[in-house]
Nucleic acid binder design. Structure first.
Length: 519
DNA sequence: GGCGGAATCA
DNA sequence: TGATTCCGCC
């Protein structure tokens, strides 16, 4: 069958494979190992990419277990145990099960897509950088974003510098090797350094880690920005090159700690466009269209919609619409963010604003006592409106989001707290009071206006909960929320369309050898 | 097969 | 913290 298009570009950046990039562990982690196997052709009969983006099937569970056991020096390892470990990833959003398919799992790439926080956790030192972009592994030519769902994800790659592209490809080809005993890389360090040199040679491009970050001031998208800031926060020799890829960071949302290292927009200049691509509106249109498509395809938060001035993004093809097509698809002439759910009109705001959850008491009063009963602990969970026009969004109900002008005008971005329409579907959701998605990590925990401040931690937790829901194919609450609320409702199987099997992943990915030294 | 709790380990 | 081990349940 036809090779999924994403295969030709999907991969993790080199550092993602490096055990030392595993959060909180010096030992190789299972997901790491899985990736390792996945990109090595010799294991194609054991485990391989298959079907949807990020989906893989364990063809030989026993063998995978054996390999894993060998790597971890756990001779008693078996698939039952290994799968238990995999299941623990569900809650971490690293993986989820492809229901109805045996031994088939899927990396939660969509969650990893922290569009609003493309650089999250970079350099936190505690987790895998979440802006890890997919790294192209095949082809080195620029092409426009595709229009079919199966191709859209490549859009994130489109704007990447060819130079980096090839550089990364080379790195991929070289690969890294991990030894069994401790999971630390052996020869990859030097290669990494070399690769870093390569990329430096390209120029300041290493700074395009912010290239198309939605929060990137749109102006800088169209004029080369002179300022280049090496990422002081990155623990890696080379910035993982988020760029547009940051929108599609693979498996790296693993560490739900998106609060630490947001890179302020001003530093997100993208010199690459001057040197490598012409970012004319048409290109951007293509890109945005593709991105928008991917947002849909992967049920991303509407935050994922990119808005750029004067560019109208065509409606993506979406056969089955469960919800009315949001108007996000028609980006306003404002560099404004990313609204939330269909009722959100935040983008229409002519001014910068951010949304904050309302003060507790008052909100509850407005919501009514009956409602309050159902959502006593998540007062703001059913926010539907955002922005100045959102007042009517809730269908007569008073807007549940407090909109306030952003006082910090130096901030080019707009802060929009995300909201959860899901909670309306699930009144039982008993999230903590932190309903809103996190604001920019660098924003002060207490809003200027004395707005009730939800601890960042909670905000993020809320966001992750949201992400979790969105990622579930059925938009069902899952792992974490379930865990949090102690609920155990059934989940519907996600429908998987456009399944494409690939036996050619390896053709596109680097040829690497996996060394499983004995223990 | 798949799930997830519980205890445990490093 | 990230498994590993065991296990009952569906």
């Amino acid at each position: 069958s036809k090779t999924p298009n994403w295969i030709y570009w999907f991969a993790f950046p080199e550092w993602a494979y490096k055990p030392e990039s595993s959060p909180g562990s010096r030992q190789i982690q299972l997901w790491h190992f899985i990736l390792e196997l996945l990109r090595k052709q010799e294991y194609n009969d054991v485990i391989a990419w298959q079907g949807d983006y990020g989906e893989f099937v364990i063809k030989d569970p026993d063998e995978v277990a054996r390999l894993w056991g060998a790597r971890k020096c756990k001779p008693q390892m078996n698939y039952d145990k290994l799968s238990r470990a995999l299941r623990y990833y569900y809650n971490k959003r690293i993986l989820h099960k492809t229901k109805g398919k045996r031994f088939t799992y899927k990396f939660n790439f969509n969650k990893l897509v922290l569009v609003n926080y493309p650089f999250i956790d970079m350099g936190s030192g505690r987790g895998v950088p979440q802006s890890a972009p997919p790294v192209p592994t095949g082809g080195t030519h620029f092409r426009f974003p595709p229009s079919t769902p199966s191709e859209v994800l490549s859009s994130s790659e489109e704007l990447r510098s060819p130079g980096v592209f090839s550089t990364v490809a080379r790195r991929m080809a070289r690969g890294s090797v991990s030894d069994c005993s401790d999971g630390t890389s052996t020869n990859s360090e030097l290669e990494e350094a070399a690769a870093a040199a390569d990329e430096r040679a390209i120029g300041p491009d290493r700074a395009f880690r912010g290239l198309l970050a939605p929060r990137l001031p749109h102006e800088s998208l169209f004029r080369p920005a002179p300022r280049v800031h090496p990422d002081p926060l990155s623990p890696f020799p080379v910035s993982p090159l988020p760029g547009p890829g940051g929108l599609l960071s693979p498996a790296l949302s693993m560490t739900p700690t998106p609060h630490l290292a947001y890179t302020p927009s001003p530093s997100l200049s993208s010199p690459m466009m001057g040197s490598h691509f012409s970012f004319n509106p048409e290109d951007m249109k293509h890109y945005l269209q593709a991105h928008t498509q991917s947002v849909y395809n992967y049920h991303l938060s509407p935050r994922a919609f990119l808005h750029y001035p004067n560019i109208i993004v065509p409606q993506p093809h979406r056969p089955t619409l469960e919800k009315p097509a949001p108007h996000h698809l028609q980006p306003p002439p404002m560099p404004l963010p990313l609204g939330q759910q269909p009722t959100d009109d935040a983008h229409a705001s002519p001014f910068k604003f951010k949304l904050q959850p309302p003060p507790l008491g008052r909100k509850q009063r407005e919501a009514g006592s009956s409602l309050a009963a159902a959502s006593s602990s998540n007062h703001a969970s059913s926010f539907t409106g955002a922005g100045p026009n959102a007042g009517s969004a809730a269908g007569g109900a008073p807007p549940k989001i407090k909109v306030e002008p952003v006082s910090d005008l130096s901030e080019e971005d707009v802060e929009v707290t995300d909201i959860s329409e899901e909670d309306e579907l699930n009144p039982n959701s008993e999230d903590e009071e932190g309903d809103m998605f996190p604001l920019l990590p660098h924003s002060p925990p207490v809003s200027p206006g004395g707005t009730r401040c939800i601890p960042l931690k909670l905000r993020f937790k809320r966001r992750w909960s949201e992400d979790q829901r969105m990622e579930a194919d059925g938009d069902r609450d899952e792992a974490e929320d379930k865990k949090v609320r102690g609920e155990g409702e059934d989940q519907e199987d996600g429908k998987r369309e456009g399944e494409e099997t690939s036996s050619e992943l390896q053709r596109a990915t680097a040829q690497l050898s996996l060394e499983n030294a004995s223990c």
